[in-house]
Structures are given as C-alpha cells and as structure tokens.
Design a protein around this nucleic acid. Structure first.
Lengths: 342, 342
DNA sequence: TTGAAAGCGTTACCAC
DNA sequence: GTGGTAACGCTTTCAA
C-alpha cells in the first residue's frame, strides 16, 4: 500500500504543531481562524484524511458497529429484510464516520461466540440485536461484555435501547378488512415460536379476531420460508386436511411464506381469493408481482435500520437514549383478499 | 465500555516484558518453552485477547476487507447471491482474524467515492470487486489507490487477481438438452449489457446455439429482476408479440427473472413446458419450489466468496496470487424444460 | 533468551 | 493561541 499522508506532514506544511492540526480539523476551539484556515488549506493540498487506526487507538473507539446474522445463508438468500435494513443502518453510520461489520453466524458455531470475539478484540463499539428470541441470551451477554447494543422490535420488557414498529394496529386493520368482506373462519401461518416477533404477530392476530367476535382458528407454525408456507397450505388444504370448517381467510406471518402458501393453494386447485383470502406481512417487492398481488402489511426496514443506527451511536457516544418508535405497519390491500365464499 | 485486559497486564502477571508476551503469543521464536507456557497461562487466566486497534496501528493493517454493494437496496432484497457469497467470504476471513465491512452504495452517491474513502481512512486492507461492468472504472481506481483487490468473474483480460466460474460448459449442456428435446426456435432474456457476466452468458448461449446449427433468436434485455423477467415474457408472448416464429425455448440470464418470466407466461395462458421451455441461471432455492420447478445452471456463490477472500488475503499479505477457478456451473434439469411442441 | 525502547497516527492535556 | 508530550495497545528492532 502506498504511503498515505499523516497529520505530521500536514503540520509541517502548515508550519504548526500536530496538536493544532488536530484541533483545527476537528473543529475544536483554541485555534485562531487564520491558522485554522491555513491548516485546512494544507490538509486539502495534501489530501489528508485521518487514519481510523490512529483515531481508534487514541479515542478508544473502533468507529465500527457490528451486525451478526444468525441464519443459515440459504435462508438469508430469500429474506428481503436485510438488504433494506442494512441500507438503513449504513445511511446513518456512514455520514458519521462509522462502518458496519457484518458477520454471518453459521448455524454450526455458537452464535454468542461471535459477539464475544467482536467485543474481546475491540472490533466494534456496539452491536444491533435483530430477530430477538424469547429470553434471548444475547441480552445478558452484551451486558456482561459491557457492549452497547440496541434491539429491533423486542418484547415489552426489553432492558436495552430499542426501536419498535407496532404491528397490532395494522393487523387490526387487516382483520377488520377481512371481517367486512364476510370472513368468519380464520387461520394463521405463524413464524417459529422462539422469535419475539413471531409471537407478537400471532398474538395481535388472535386478539383482533377475538375482539371482532370470531374464533381465531388454526395456527400452523412455519419457518418464514417459501417452502414452509407451501407446507402449511398443504396441511390446511391438502387431501389429508379436514374438509369442513376450512378457513376462508389466512394470515401468514411474512410475505415469503404467504407467497409459498398461495402457490401451493394454486397447485391444490384452491382459488385465491375466490376460495381463500391470503394476507402476508412485510411488504416485499415480490408481493406486488405475484398473481394475485399479495395483501400485506408494509413495514419499513430501511427506517428501522436508520433508527437502530442512530440509537446505537448515541449509546456508544454516551448520550442518554430513549427508544424509537417507527410509524406502524400499514395495511396494503391487493388482490389476494376478497369476499368470503358463500 | 469496561476496561479490557491489555498486553501490559499479561506481562506483569507473567513477570516478563511485553515484547516477550507478544513474541510468545504470536508463536515467534526467541522465547523459551518455559516462559512461553507461563505467558500463555497468564494470558488465559486474564482472558487476554489482543486489541485489533493496537495491532492495526502497529501492523499497518486494518484486518478488515471491504465489500461495496452497488445496487438499489430493493434489488438486493430479492437477490439470492449475496447471502451465500458473504457467507463464503466470512468463512475464510473470520478464522484468519479478518472482518468484513459491508457498504451499500446507494444509487444516488458516486459509488467510486466509497472506495476512495475506504482507502483514505485506511479502513480496509483490500476490497472485492463484484458485478463487474465492461471497462469497470473500479479497476483503475484500486490501482490508483494502491488498494489490493480481487475480481469476481471478470472479463478475460482482467488485470487483477480473480476468481472465475465457467458458465459456457453448462450453457452448452443446456443447449444440448434443449436441442435433444426437439427445440429449434430460441430466445434469450439477458441481463443489462454493461455487466460482464450478462455479456458472457449471452455470448455463451449464442455460441452454443449457433454451434448446434440453429438461430440464436431474439435477445430481450432485462435487469435480473422478477419484474424484468415478467416484462420480457409479455414482450415475447403478449398480445402485441408476433405470433409466428415464437420461441419454444427461452434461456433467462438468472433464475429470478426466469421465475418472473414463467409467472407471466402462466398469466398469458402459455404453458410451461408444454408450449415453451424455460431455463434460468443461478440455482436459487426458490427455483426448486415454484411450479414447474425451474431448470437452471447451479453456481456456487459460497465457494466463490471463499476463494475471493482467500485470494484477497494472500494479496494483502504480499504473497503472489494466481487466479482461482471454481468448478463450472452445472446443468440442473427440472420440470420447466420439456419436449418442443410440434 | 530477555527486556527496553521506538514507532504506528491520532487525540487530549498542559505548559508556555 | 500555540506547541510539546503523554497516552492509546501493540509489534519490532536491537542491546544486553
């Protein structure tokens, strides 16, 4: 690598001490406007950019935050959340001079180790905790490690700073929508029960259906994948499924599963929305392309990422942080929901 | 953040100089086995892990490599390549003490700036160059910046270390497969022409079809998205498309577009594979779920990522690097290709 | 074999 | 306002 220009050379060119260069360039007081200008000039001439390495050591800060993805890579493949979420993180990290370290905790290795090593090597100043599980062990871990962290959509009693997006209001709208279309028999294709967000969506759905005076119906646990959605459809509508009392409206905990669900229904000769209305959750692009277009709840992964980064940086920089609340997920009605069959 | 234990404390506990600790722990000679053991013990007792910050400054190395993704976040959403590719990178970076910095170059900002800043701040020791375009400006840039880099599937005359996976053999197999099924009229749904890999796939397809003695037929440029594939289908088989001379076999430059293509065909009442055979490229999970299952060429993004990381680290550490060749993409026949209609 | 000290590029403190 | 200088945590060189 080529030799890059350091603060020493800037100081030499401007004819001042390096401490003055540091003060001047970082906008600290104690430098006359005149010399500040001269220093700026010298820095520009030389194309000086401070080395994060030096800054890191001196400032005791890595200027880096970590995100560990715990999924199997192939699950991530089709997950629409991460791209936008990471983009959101980036959008606030980058302007503030921070970078994102991404780790993929393969299912094999102990995921907590990743955090341990990140902290032990002082690689990152903080981490964002995503896809929280019930009693997530990472919460205790980051406290033990004294590592700043923010949670994304955690449970109510979460002890760390968090960004939340309400989904109960939107799910309520969805239930109203379905009920007003005449639906009375429901089912839910849930995410894995260990995830906080799976549970919350399931609970919000159940509560809303019950509040509307109906039976919440069957709950089939899937795994957020396309294939899991397809299997759930087979279970509810396949040849072995009970014929009477079949639901006429199904809420899937995420769009990808909902799309798999619809595809399998199609194969089984069940019409959407003629025989069954289907709704998802997420608002992924794909949902607008498939036929029928998928009714869903739109979330804001990019915004969530941006807020998470904002909170985390505040936390890292020792400011007091209050939780962030994103605008609620909203109902987006497309063609996959329609009047209940008579 | 809690105070972490440093090399000084290890030295104190072992009753030696810090330089001895450094030598002992890094497996350098010049330390007796006895003191080495004592030092190891002390380090273990204290739970010492060297700070990357200190090492970075001293070693003039960030122990970090960079990947800049240039897509719109929403395109990335549905791209299956990155998850596995990043997993592959990680799988070799992590054991060697390196971490991955991921940046998302939003379409808005000048993407080259990302590399400039990464290099200027000494944030990374090298970068991997993905989705290379024809005359990709990043090639000159990294040389100007003197930043180690590896290319993924570049053109033949690429001046930097590269990892390549041949697709012409697999595409040849595909053409053989289609021809043996009786197909004579072909079309290709291509990726954007600025990408090297779009062009290579298109050329391999054309060459193979011509070599088989047939006309390569229409080429419709799409953009690797589901929607782009659907639009291509509308163009080739929609109401405005010429009715005679329609292709009976279509090769799409990637799976996602192929799936969009098939979905649109379905809507248009064109049967797959009854009326038209469709093949994709990539081997994404989704292709095995959709109906009919998608015939495709399977690539190895995880392996490509691993090799890219391996080459890049060699390059960073000043070793001589030779290009890596991944096993060729292979034909995977599923239900979307069948006998040509008579 | 061991240890002292310089150096990596910053920031921050404290004299002047 | 300005300029030394210590400190950050490590590696490396060089004497002892």
């Amino acid at each position: 690598m080529a030799e890059r220009v350091t603060i020493v050379e800037v100081a030499a060119r401007a004819g001042v001490a390096i401490s003055s260069v540091s003060s001047a360039l970082n906008g600290r007081p104690g430098v006359s406007e005149q010399t500040r200008a001269r220093i700026r000039q010298a820095a520009d001439d030389l194309g000086f950019v401070p080395s994060v390495r030096g800054r890191s050591l001196s400032a005791k800060r890595a200027f880096t935050i970590g995100l560990v993805v715990h999924r199997d890579p192939f699950v991530l493949e089709s997950d629409p959340f991460f791209g936008s979420f990471i983009g959101g993180l980036e959008s606030v990290l980058d302007p503030r001079g921070y970078a994102l370290i991404l780790q993929m905790g393969s299912a094999a290795d102990e995921p907590l180790d990743r955090y341990r090593r990140l902290a032990a090597g002082r690689r990152v100043d903080g981490v964002v905790l995503n896809e929280l599980t019930v009693d997530d062990p990472r919460v205790d871990l980051v406290r033990e490690l004294d590592l700043p962290a923010v949670g994304v959509n955690p449970a109510g009693d979460f002890p760390l700073p968090a960004v939340r997006q309400d989904d109960s209001a939107g799910i309520g709208e969805l239930v109203d929508h379905l009920v007003s279309l005449g639906h009375r028999r429901f089912a839910h294709v849930a995410g894995p029960g260990r995830f906080v967000h799976s549970r919350r969506r399931g609970a919000a759905w159940r509560d809303a259906v019950v509040a509307a005076g109906h039976d919440p119906g069957a709950v089939v646990e899937a795994d957020f994948t396309y294939d899991g959605g397809a299997r759930a459809a087979a279970r509810l509508f396949g040849p072995d499924a009970p014929v009477d009392d079949r639901p006429t409206a199904v809420f899937c905990a995420n769009d990808l599963a909902a799309i798999g669900f619809m595809t399998e229904l199609d194969r089984l000769g069940v019409r959407v929305p003629g025989d069954v209305s289907v709704a998802g959750f997420d608002g992924i692009e794909l949902g607008s392309y498939v036929r029928p277009g998928l009714t869903t709840l739109t979330t804001a992964p990019r915004l969530i990422g941006a807020e998470a980064a904002r909170l985390l940086l505040s936390s890292v920089e020792g400011e007091t942080v209050t939780d962030a609340e994103i605008e609620p997920a909203r109902l987006l009605v497309r063609a996959s929901t329609g009047p209940a069959a008579r």
